[in-house]
Design a protein around this nucleic acid. Sequence first.
DNA 1: GGGGAGAGATGCCGC
DNA 2: GCGGCATTTCTCCCC
Lengths: 245, 245
Amino acid sequence: MELDIAAFNDALGKNAVIILSCSCEIHYSGRAESFLGSGGRIIVIKADKTLLIHQPAGSNPINYMKEGTSYSLSRNEGKLVLRCSNIPLKEYMDIFISKVHSFQQLQMEDSAKIQLVGSERDMSDMIYGNPALIEPGFKPLSREEHTKYGFIDVFGYDKNNVLVVIECKRYTADLKAVDQLQRYVKKIKELKGLVKVRGIIAAPEISPNTLQMLKDNGFEYRKISPPKYLERFNKGQKSLGDYES
Amino acid sequence: MELDIAAFNDALGKNAVIILSCSCEIHYSGRAESFLGSGGRIIVIKADKTLLIHQPAGSNPINYMKEGTSYSLSRNEGKLVLRCSNIPLKEYMDIFISKVHSFQQLQMEDSAKIQLVGSERDMSDMIYGNPALIEPGFKPLSREEHTKYGFIDVFGYDKNNVLVVIECKRYTADLKAVDQLQRYVKKIKELKGLVKVRGIIAAPEISPNTLQMLKDNGFEYRKISPPKYLERFNKGQKSLGDYES
DNA sequence: GGGGAGAGATGCCGC
DNA sequence: GCGGCATTTCTCCCC
């Protein structure tokens, strides 16, 4: 099909969502540089002028531009070229379109915000509200502490009044989690002038190397999973519950 | 518009790319749990059965399902429901569609692979090929060393035959970069029985705190940017060069 | 806007 | 498959 440049510009001006399926070739220059040879793609320009280019498979866009990008569609010697530029970010893209399969513009509204449960923050809240999950006598002082020591998930005293730093991970704890814990514990020792500060990783799983490194540093592991309140809620419903039988 | 369930299933069977714009409500349950109230969205199901749901603004999909997901579209009491399940991953989604704005199926081919320049790997290659970028007399031994110590970007000897570990970052080096360097240097000292091993971060920028922590640990910083060969190539062309004037 | 850290991160590569 | 790590990461929060 033919793509009407005026219709495209009209859609841009109305902050419509544009969906273009086409064969194209892509040059990108910005934080890095890339080239993608010809193939079938879906190009989406959103109301906020975000650009996404998707191949027929895979989760991530193969190329993209951020919010606030400017677009200029032109026909040069019979070929369609979509030039994209984000001056403040110094990001540029040229899309050379050889064949347009479809063009669509949509006026859509969506003010809904997602509610998500099961994050690391939910884990630290759970531990804060139920400190026995760590051990008897654990007394949490704060959570998500954004201080100069670092951003500590949970921070408290054990039954012997020894300071405890807890790093939560919602997934398998890896070497980087120990790095982080180590950095926090070291900073706190320095700032408080303490010799003994305990470090604990709370996570549903931990890799063998990570457990080794944890022990080598005198730290501890607690097997704790993030809460999923909505899951419990859904168990009483037909919709998602069906899958769990 | 009305959505033809048979046409939808036909598109799925042909591994077409499906694009559906609609108003819908979304429940997700898997690694976490989420709920998203009604609003206008674009739903894409790719040839590999990846699902993406986009709101009219923002880079990232608000909900998604991974490759290999199964779909079942049905009409219950006049309402359209798209049930998505990925049994091996224990991920499930229910999409309650209140209004269909458009439906499209596309047969597309794309075997092109992206060429990208300016990655961390390109940086380590550049240093390996031009060791003077670090300092006179630096002799690199290997790059991207995948050993049990960790994955060291560049590894070599200085002019005094002291071992040097270099960690490259394509962007501003942060505290985690020092964590990583520290971990590598420590492991190498242990395994080789060395007292002195130098650690260097090579990055275009470094945050003040990071530089402080780097120095506190006796490590060094080299201001080096990742290479961008394609940019140089494009300077001679009209396309991307236009923007740089 | 920069810094610091999480993410339903994803993707890549190596074992 | 898991492990370890980069990413044009993106997003959020706080200073």
